[in-house]
Amino acid sequence: MEIQHESSSRYSGTDTDSIFTVGNGIPSGLISLPLRYMHSVVEMANLKDVQQVIDVLVAFVESVGPDDEFKIKI
């Protein structure tokens, strides 16, 4: 599976921009799916890319252990 990593401290144009700044901040991550013609009736994505996004999300969920915490520690 090919994954491209990108770190960004700028505006992403997604709901994640609002989520991670709520209150003292909410740890969050963004997974993007490459597609064409977003928000139109002819939006298109490659089915292999869709499956890879699903695989990444499933792998993450399966990797979470009972001692994992998703909060900011100050």
Rank of each mutant, 00 (worst) to 15 (best):
Q4L: 13
Q4W: 09
Q4F: 04
Q4P: 07
H5Q: 05
H5G: 05
H5E: 02
E6Y: 07
S7P: 06
S7N: 11
S7D: 01
S7C: 07
S7L: 04
S8W: 03
S8A: 00
S8I: 00
S9L: 08
R10V: 12
R10E: 15
Y11T: 14
Y11V: 15
S12T: 15
S12I: 09
G13I: 08
G13N: 05
T14Q: 05
T14C: 00
D15E: 07
D15M: 05
D15Q: 08
T16S: 13
T16E: 04
T16A: 08
D17K: 05
D17V: 13
D17R: 06
S18P: 02
S18G: 02
S18C: 12
S18V: 09
S18K: 08
I19V: 12
I19P: 02
I19Q: 07
T21G: 01
V22K: 07
V22H: 14
V22R: 12
V22N: 05
V22S: 06
V22W: 07
V22A: 10
G23Q: 15
N24Y: 07
N24I: 03
G25H: 14
G25T: 09
G25A: 14
G25P: 02
I26E: 01
I26R: 01
P27E: 10
P27F: 04
P27S: 14
P27H: 04
S28M: 12
G29A: 08
G29C: 06
L30Q: 05
L30W: 01
I31M: 11
I31S: 07
I31H: 03
I31D: 11
S32G: 04
S32D: 07
L33M: 14
P34R: 13
P34L: 01
L35E: 03
L35F: 14
L35G: 15
L35Y: 08
Y37N: 04
Y37P: 01
H39Y: 00
H39Q: 11
H39S: 08
S40Q: 13
S40F: 03
V41R: 11
V42G: 03
E43I: 11
E43W: 04
M44Y: 08
M44N: 15
M44W: 05
M44H: 08
A45S: 08
A45T: 15
A45N: 03
A45K: 02
A45R: 01
L47Y: 00
K48H: 13
K48C: 13
K48V: 13
D49W: 00
D49G: 07
D49Q: 04
D49N: 14
V50T: 11
Q51C: 04
V53M: 11
I54M: 11
I54A: 12
D55P: 04
V56P: 00
V56H: 08
V56F: 04
V58Q: 13
V58S: 01
A59P: 03
A59C: 13
V61M: 06
V61Y: 06
V61W: 06
E62Q: 15
E62N: 11
V64N: 06
V64A: 00
G65V: 09
G65C: 03
P66Q: 14
P66C: 10
D67E: 15
D68M: 07
D68N: 15
D68T: 08
D68A: 12
E69W: 02
F70W: 00
K71F: 00
K71M: 06
K71N: 02
K71P: 01
K71D: 09
K71Q: 06
I72T: 14
I72F: 03
